[in-house]
Design a protein around this nucleic acid. Structure first.
Lengths: 272, 272
DNA sequence: GCCGTTATGGTCATAGTGACCATAACATGG
DNA sequence: CCATGTTATGGTCACTATGACCATAACGGC
């Protein structure tokens, strides 16, 4: 790409990029999926320093000059899950960027690390295979991570002392923010449909709200709202056979619709 | 701050920060205010390369190892507006981070520049004084910036050819995203009150919606909604004297309330 | 006093919601 | 086969919030 702005080429030829102390730019991925009705996030147990033995969000460095953070997120996501994310068409979205100098101890070696955090949603991801720099990788139920306490400990620069797996860096903070983003987005978007495999029943979809919000909307009212929102779900002609262990009428199967937004939004019960 | 993680000190002492090619980290500020009923954004005409003579969002480099992007945003904001932003208590919020290698031509000199964008809102800011690296600074009505066309031109890597002031870097894209964030946020938050000086009338508040959304909600219904939302505004005992040129009943004056969210949200007319 | 303007408090039909209820379609255990 | 429990689906009903109005009061200027 050439500039068409007079004088700029000469300026750039003489530019000293070393005049600025270097930052590192990384991406951190909050990969959420629902397993057995429980909202889980992918974490990797670190095998190397820093934070050796702690659990961290998957991610990695943005390749300098060759990709954007968005592209790095797609690349890392495919590497971590072993799936071609661009083909899969899963949801991926930037959440926030974390730049506190103290967030990565490598600042003591002169490296200021900024990280762009993403949220990825997928239905029923396969169990991950550990990468090269990861001792173990698994999906943790977010309820088991004691996020509020870990985030408070990080904020106060204390070590977290509790039974939950200790999170590396500021990842308790990042995961909290990402979780709140997902919870909020279920209110006004059709994002919930990204958590289920097609075809799905309305009860499947409702279980997503149960898992993410911690409670289920009223069954009949939920059905009414979903079916009256144009383009949220598309009915098929098929019914799912009733489960072998439990009875009940066979439910109609649905596919994801094209609508992105729910208007007026779902109302979440703030009291819980 | 010392780590309490075994082995990490030794690791850090031997760490080579130069192993990663350097990024630069900057902040870009979308400073919105309403003047004469028109939504405006602060822009600075660049006096130096790159993009000499173009109009850019105010901002600057994050100071390596000494501050976060949030802190840099507050610092730059105070410098650009000449006001102590922490005292002023104005609204400041991160929007998104832009990391495309091509977004800054200094990539050709080996510098990959990532920028964290912020939105700042304030009532009636004073006219800015030009900084050292700025030839001129002024508030531009966002309607006059031809944002859609400039953003499309940037996306297609074409030069923008139009009558609006040419925007530097990807700032048309950033400004578009920030504007949409503000428009959306008026729906479900009490952010509009950040645009008016206290004390204010309900008509003042309604003019904020007029300026940001491009149309005004129905007068009586707007009053009903605002007054029925607990903590949005707090009535005083004072009335504002009617304007000298126009008649009309003297309106009651209000202060900002403590509520952050409007539930259920305002509904924006998507068509209008 | 009249008129135009602004502020404020109303009405009324309608849409959307929360809390239910009824019935149909299934499985399992007696 | 029948009773019972479970699930899916379609309903009712009171209440709330909204959009589109209307009425009146309080002002300044003529």
């Amino acid at each position: 790409m050439t500039t068409h702005r007079p004088g700029e080429d000469a300026y750039l030829a003489a530019y000293d990029a070393g005049a600025f102390p270097p930052f590192a730019l990384t991406v951190d991925l909050n990969i959420f999926t629902i397993r057995d009705g429980v909202l889980t996030a992918l974490l990797i147990e670190r095998g190397d320093h820093p934070f050796k033995g702690f659990w961290a969000l998957p991610g990695g460095h943005v390749e300098h000059g060759r990709e954007s953070a968005d592209e790095a997120a797609v690349r890392e996501l495919s590497e971590e899950t072993g799936l071609d994310w661009t083909r899969l068409g899963g949801h991926l979205e930037q959440v926030a960027t974390y730049t506190d100098p103290d967030r990565d101890p490598r600042i003591r070696a002169g490296l200021h690390v900024a990280s762009v955090a993403y949220v990825a949603l997928a239905p029923n991801l396969p169990s991950p295979t550990a990468g090269t720099d990861a001792a173990r990788a698994r999906f943790w139920p977010v309820e088991d991570l004691d996020l509020d306490a870990q985030r408070a400990a990080w904020h106060d620069r204390r070590a977290y002392r509790g039974d939950a797996p200790a999170l590396a860096y500021d990842h308790a903070l990042i995961l909290s923010d990402a979780l709140e983003r997902v919870r909020a987005k279920l209110e006004y978007s059709t994002l919930a449909a990204q958590f289920v495999t097609e075809p799905f029943t309305l009860a499947d979809l409702r279980r997503v709200y149960q898992a993410v919000w911690g409670y289920a909307p009223d069954l009949a009212n939920f059905r009414r709202k979903v079916l009256k929102t144009p383009g949220f779900v598309v009915p098929t002609e098929e019914y799912r056979p009733a489960a072998s262990d439990r009875g009940g009428a066979p439910p109609l199967l649905y596919l994801r619709g094209t609508a992105q937004w729910i208007n007026p939004p779902f109302v979440r019960d703030r009291a819980g």
